[in-house]
Design a protein around this nucleic acid. Structure first.
Ligand SMILES: [Mn+2]
Ligand SMILES: [Mn+2]
Ligand SMILES: [Zn+2]
Ligand SMILES: [Zn+2]
Lengths: 174, 174
DNA sequence: TGACATAATGAAAACGACTTTCAACTTCAG
DNA sequence: CTGAAGTTGAAAGTCGTTTTCATTATGTCA
């Protein structure tokens, strides 16, 4: 059982490898290259942590790069998923989808504090193995899984006990 | 690792216990009793399997009982969740929420065939234990989790191989 | 180096699940 | 019984996401 360090954004060399992979998918699907798409891909790949579509759009504007239209971002993200650059994550949040880079990162799942929104990323091989066993037992070929744990982190537990409800830090992100 | 049998709807005695629990919550929250709410609760508790809000509304109409307005169902379901009668399930389906009875049923997670929609309900204590260990390791007090496995069931795998794409049974339920 | 076919884009409208508003209707304590 | 307060259906509103459509960008083939 290992906690993963916060993922830094991809560096320029990694970015090049990722964009190359994107271009392969674009070629394979008979699409055309587009600078806007690559700008969105760069923003997604260099984002540190989990992001919503809105985070990305705002980030683009903030970076003073050409800002892409939300509709375009909505169109591009599925392509980035197909290319294996990003993946949907924290799927059980009822408010909008969230994504994170998966390109050149290892698989992990999430432990979330429902009070303050803290997210711990972990990699637990024993559980992964049991999941595979289970799928095999039932004759399924496993293609993916969603595994999110919810609870109260230690700081939240303590401030709950002490002050009867005040939070210790940032508010839950939605 | 155990596969759960398909849950039959609750029988009349169980229904009475469940409604009693609902009435306790209603009382505790200073609400009033309502026949419509109990009709919706009955429909939810006797539904066999996983249901969407729409399934429930249609079921009510079909049973020739008083049909409740969708808005009312949307209002009542959270109360049933609070009372521990039902819970949200199959949360990663991007289309509307799904629920299932949890009152007098044991906890379980889901293995879903993404081709045909088949859902296998399983109970895997070893994984449950590891989840608790993990949360404790990181100082979290665990309150819940979402665990859904995705894959291809044996029939789908075989029809894929044989006919190059035809499904063996019903289509994926969204 | 065009010129054409076709993909990509922004803007706005449409969508769908869900929530809120509001007037009419129940429920229930006094 | 009566009134205060919760509940309901109907309709409007919200919000994330998708679709439509006119315009612009890309790439292939003269
Ligand atoms: Mn993550
Ligand atoms: Mn189930
Ligand atoms: Zn916390
Ligand atoms: Zn199947």
């Amino acid at each position: 059982m290992r906690r993963l360090p916060t993922s830094p954004g991809l560096d320029e060399r990694g970015l090049q490898r990722a964009l190359e992979r994107l271009r392969e998918v674009v070629r394979a699907r008979g699409l055309k290259n587009s600078s806007v798409r690559e700008i969105i891909a760069r923003a997604a790949l260099t984002y540190e942590g989990h992001f919503s579509i809105d985070d990305l759009v705002r980030g683009l504007r903030g970076d003073a790069l050409v800002d892409a239209h939300p509709a375009t971002v909505y169109r591009v993200l599925p392509l980035l998923v197909e290319a294996g650059l990003i993946e949907a994550t924290l799927v059980s949040s009822k408010a909008g989808s969230r994504y994170e880079r998966c390109f050149e990162r290892e698989h992990h799942d999430h432990l979330v504090c429902t009070k303050c929104g803290t997210v711990v990323e972990f990699c637990f091989e024993a559980i992964e193995v049991l999941q595979r066993d289970l799928a095999e037992r039932f004759g399924f070929e496993l293609t993916g899984h969603v595994h999110e744990l919810f609870g109260t982190c230690r700081p939240c537990k303590q401030s709950d006990k002490a002050s009867g409800g005040a939070t210790h830090g940032r508010a839950p992100s939605r």
